[in-house]
Design a protein around this nucleic acid. Structure first.
Lengths: 110, 110
DNA sequence: TTTATATATGAATGGCTATTCATACATCAT
DNA sequence: ATGATGTATGAATAGCCATTCATATATAAA
């Protein structure tokens, strides 16, 4: 396990917006407009994120008229599910951590 | 699953240095000096990371003379293991992703 | 007490990168 | 064709945060 794959893995999946998109896609396939509504992200921003998720092999896409329908790749479903379960189970522990660096995060959370 | 816990979770675990430390701690408990050797990080840097991992509940510490021996908390062992397995299994897919953003990463990897 | 070793803490900063803005491209309807 | 709608792309930037440097604290040995 070397630096490149670990950094790339967390770069792709460790961003809140991208992880949220993957979580939504666990439930059902969505086109870009639907992802925009589901996440409250801007359209161009969503497209950038989808480009990242596509190229890292986390999602697939198919055309449907003007729309592009994205679906999560089945191989990563268990991984995402286990991360979500972990975050939900240890929610309180995670939130209660009180490190200096957390101030960085707090500033960003609206 | 809300923004704060997701961001905090990935903030703590999604950093390569911290993830590497956790991976080392899966094998055996280590004091700071041993972590320094195992990861080639600087001592003060390791201490900063341990502070983060402590406060987020990922590791525990006990004194042993001048040394502080850190151990990974058993609840997160399965999670870290599954992440490592995933990264190793899909190593080629992860590495072969060719997104614009990857240039950010490539610059950093030595 | 003095010195040495192990670890922690505080401040500063350089560079990564999510987001935004502007615009281009693709498809469909009229 | 022309307009409308859905999506992608390129460039710019603001600010997060890992790392480094300097220093403090803690413990042990002499």
């Amino acid at each position: 396990m070397e630096k490149l794959e670990v950094k790339t893995f967390f770069f792709a999946i460790g961003d809140y917006s991208r992880f949220s998109i993957l979580a939504k896609l666990l439930e059902k396939d969505l086109n870009v407009g639907e992802i925009v509504k589901a996440t409250s992200l801007e359209q161009s921003n969503v497209s950038h994120h989808m480009s990242c998720l596509m190229n890292c092999g986390f999602v697939s896409v198919k055309k449907d008229g003007k729309a592009r329908i994205y679906s999560i790749n089945s191989e990563i479903r268990p991984m995402i599910n286990s991360m979500i379960r972990h975050i939900e189970k240890y929610r309180n522990d995670i939130i209660s951590c009180d490190i200096a660096d957390r101030s960085y995060i707090s500033k960003v959370i609206k």
